[in-house]
C-alpha cells in the first residue's frame, strides 16, 4: 500500500510513545545508571565507569550461563523446527478435524508459564507423576532434581511440549497459502514426495518459518519461569539459564552493578536479534504487497 506522508500522524502514535517510554525507557535508564556506579549502601553512589562491564566480561559465571543458554536454545530449535514442520505436513487440510487439531495444539500455548513448570514438575516425579513413574518402573534411573542429564532432558522436553505447536501452526499457515496448481504441476512432472517438499512446500514456507525460528530463539533466549519452577536452576547450576542467573543476581543477591551491566549486554544481544527479525518481517511485507 502506498502511504501518504502526514506528520500529524504523530498525534495518533503519541499515547503509545508516552506509555512505552514510561514502562521501557525509564527502567532501562535506571539499569544504565546502575551499570556505571558502585554503592556501599546508604544510597550513596560512586562513579565506577566501565568496571562492572569489565568484571562481567571476565566472569566465568556469565560465560557459563551464556553457554548453557545457547545450548538450550540450540537444542530446542533443532527439535522443535523439524518436528513442527513434520506435524504441520500431517495436519488435516480442513473441516472438523483441522479445527479440532488447531484447538488441541493451541492448548499448551495458553497455559501460564509457571503452571507449565508445575505440570512437568509433577509429571516427572517418580512417586506421583506418570512419566517419572513409568520410567522408574521400566528401570530407567530418572531423577531430575539430582541428575544433570535428567534435568536437561526434562526442561527440553517441557519446552518441546510447550512450543512445538507454535512452529507447527505457523508452518501450517504457510502451507495453506500454497495454491493447488503447484501440487498439480508437481504431479504432472511426477515429482517425488521429497521433491514436492523441497522445491514447493519449503520455499513457500520459508517466510513464516523464519518468523517461527526467530520467535522461538527469542523466547527461549529469555526463558525464566518454566525451568525455574521445575529445577530452580539446579542441580547445582546445571540449568541456570541467562534470565535465571540475572534474577538471582539482581533480586536475590542485590548485586546491582554487575546485574545491570549483565542486563545491558543481554539487551544488546536482544536488540541485534530484533533487528534481524524486523528485516525479515519487512521483507515479508514487501513481498506480500
Amino acid at each position: 500500500m502506498n502511504k501518504t506522508t502526514n506528520q500529524k500522524a504523530w498525534f495518533l502514535v503519541l499515547p503509545v510513545l508516552v506509555l512505552v517510554a514510561f514502562s521501557a525507557v525509564i527502567p532501562l535508564m535506571t539499569v544504565v545508571n546502575y551499570s556505571v556506579q558502585d554503592t556501599f549502601g546508604n544510597n550513596q553512589f560512586f562513579w565506577a565507569g566501565l568496571e562492572w562491564f569489565e568484571e562481567m566480561l571476565a566472569s566465568q559465571r556469565m560465560w557459563d550461563a551464556l553457554g548453557r543458554q545457547l545450548m538450550f536454545s540450540g537444542i530446542i530449535l533443532a527439535i522443535e523446527v523439524p518436528l513442527g514442520i513434520f506435524v504441520a505436513l500431517n495436519m488435516p487440510k480442513g473441516g472438523f478435524w483441522a479445527s479440532f487439531c488447531l484447538v488441541m495444539m493451541s492448548l499448551p500455548l495458553l497455559i501460564p508459564w509457571n503452571v507449565v513448570g508445575t505440570i512437568w514438575q509433577i509429571f516427572g516425579r517418580v512417586d506421583i507423576g506418570l512419566l517419572g513413574y513409568v520410567l522408574d518402573r521400566i528401570g530407567v534411573n530418572y531423577n531430575y532434581t539430582q541428575d544433570t542429564v535428567a534435568a536437561w532432558i526434562t526442561i527440553v522436553v517441557m519446552d518441546v511440549w510447550h512450543w512445538t505447536s507454535l512452529v507447527a501452526l505457523l508452518a501450517y499457515a504457510g502451507l495453506k497459502s500454497i495454491p493447488d496448481a503447484f501440487y498439480q504441476a508437481a504431479k504432472i512432472d511426477q515429482a517425488s514426495r521429497w521433491k514436492v517438499f523441497r522445491y514447493i512446500e519449503l520455499p513457500k514456507m520459508m517466510g513464516v518459518l523464519m518468523i517461527a525460528v526467530l520467535l522461538r530463539f527469542m523466547d527461549s533466549f529469555m526463558i525464566y519461569t518454566e525451568p525455574f519452577v521445575v529445577t530452580g536452576g539446579g542441580p547445582g547450576n546445571a540449568t541456570t539459564l541467562l534470565s535465571i542467573d540475572l534474577v538471582k543476581m539482581a533480586l536475590g543477591q542485590f548485586d546491582l552493578g554487575p546485574a545491570a551491566a549483565f542486563s545491558i549486554m543481554y539487551f544488546l544481544v536482544i536488540l541485534l536479534i530484533s533487528w534481524v527479525f524486523y528485516t525479515v518481517m519487512t521483507n515479508l511485507d514487501n513481498r506480500g504487497s
Partner: peptide, 15 residues
C-alpha cells in the same frame, strides 16, 4: 516497539 516485545522481563524486574 518490536524490541520491547522482545525485551527479557528479567532485565526489567528490578527497575
Amino acid at each position: 516497539l518490536l524490541t520491547n516485545r522482545m525485551a527479557p522481563p528479567a532485565v526489567f524486574a528490578l527497575p
